[in-house]
Design a protein around this nucleic acid. Structure first.
Lengths: 217, 217
DNA sequence: GCACTTATGTACTAACTAGTACGTTAGTAA
DNA sequence: TTACTAACGTACTAGTTAGTACATAAGTGC
């Protein structure tokens, strides 16, 4: 009698809800893969942490690799959507670049799982990304935004003529990704936490200034 | 009779050479861990690719984790030694910074395994680095070099007063690490290989210019 | 040439892990 | 209400993988 029957957790019987089941699997899998890497992630552990079973992972995603690819597609579609919401209209080209750099910094700091998954995918030489049709042809909207700013700036002489949109994106990304992706080894060796809330403002304005100085003629 | 005895591969009997045995294990393990990540690496595969057996890995390194830590210590000691050989004497502070940035770029491009292992260690939140006494207290010599350059430049007015050595190192690292670490996802999505030999010169001078512009008062 | 330590090889195991065979229930359309 | 399909759960398996028990040979000191 010290063994009361466990209450049926979510109503009686099974709650059939394929959309929620898949969403929940993805959500848990994002964390597991971001935390443990592809090889370190465990399908059983993911299943445990959902309200469904391992069987459903195989039912919906085919297997570990399919689930991982779905996770990549999920997080990339997230950043793509947020990039489309970026707004720098009404700013001068220089201010627009500064704003873009700072917003990118904010975004990356706010989404470490995305950065971790990108690092992990690079460890595997982006082979899953390349295989995914949904992803390998993905053009990121931020590129068009940058190209527009640069063009305007070149026209009014506030931005150097040889500025290239992909390079600008690379500069912003490298700075923002590093702070998140290499946070732990950097902190261990140089005793400085790049994401220390007290230094956020400093590092945030730094990337803006870095880009502005680089792009000024 | 169609089964000729396999020739003893390396002289007759066992060649006892503990130094070479350990060195060979480390060398093979660097590649395996850099290629596959910590969880993806296989102790059996490492053993296969050496002239010794798995038993020796456990004899010398205690286990997979000990071997991985030894690999980290090995590659960090390598970069530390090469940093000590950096020579920017006789250059103006500005030229010294430019040179330092470009040499760091060259170094990182030449040692992708190191960058990959750092990424992998960050995936695991630098827990092995932190545990290793040999590594967690490691001060990188490049920091003193940068500090010296900045001090000289502040004195003669060629470098802004608020420049910080750790931040400068972070700027250089972020750029150089990104090109190697995120090469694959970047190439897949933006169709540009950051390590394309034809673009090396461009990206090499870019990091120098980036730093010089940022540090100019 | 003998005792002892270090280095090495072979063969094995316990535990884990991705994946599956098989059965069952909930909703749906007729 | 019945036949059917999509969604789900349980119990299992085959293969892998880190780690070990045990035996043995190569040097070393005397």
């Amino acid at each position: 009698m010290q063994d009361p029957p466990p209450p049926a957790p979510y109503g009686s019987g099974r709650a059939r809800d394929p959309v929620r089941t898949q969403a929940e699997i993805i959500e848990v899998a994002v964390r597991e893969f971001a935390d443990q890497g592809y090889s370190g992630a465990r399908v059983d552990r993911i299943a445990e942490r959902t309200r469904t079973t391992k069987r459903m992972i195989y039912y919906y995603f085919g297997g570990k690799e399919g689930l991982y690819t779905a996770v990549l597609e999920h997080v990339y579609s997230g950043i793509r959507q947020r990039e489309q919401a970026l707004d720098v209209a009404g700013l001068s080209p220089i201010d627009a670049i500064r704003r873009l750099a700072e917003l990118t910094y904010d975004h990356h700091v706010a989404h470490p799982d995305f950065i971790r998954l990108v690092s992990i995918e690079n460890t595997h030489r982006a082979e899953h990304l390349a295989k995914s049709e949904a992803l390998s042809n993905l053009r990121m909207p931020v590129l068009d935004l940058i190209a527009g700013i640069l063009e305007k700036g070149r026209a009014d002489g506030t931005i150097r003529a040889d500025a290239d949109a992909v390079d600008v994106h690379m500069l912003v990304s490298s700075y923002c990704v590093f702070a998140v992706a290499n946070r732990h080894t950097f902190a261990t060796i140089f005793a400085r936490d790049l994401l220390d809330p007290e230094r956020r403002g400093h590092y945030r304005s730094m990337v803006g200034e870095l880009l502005v100085r680089y792009l000024t003629p």
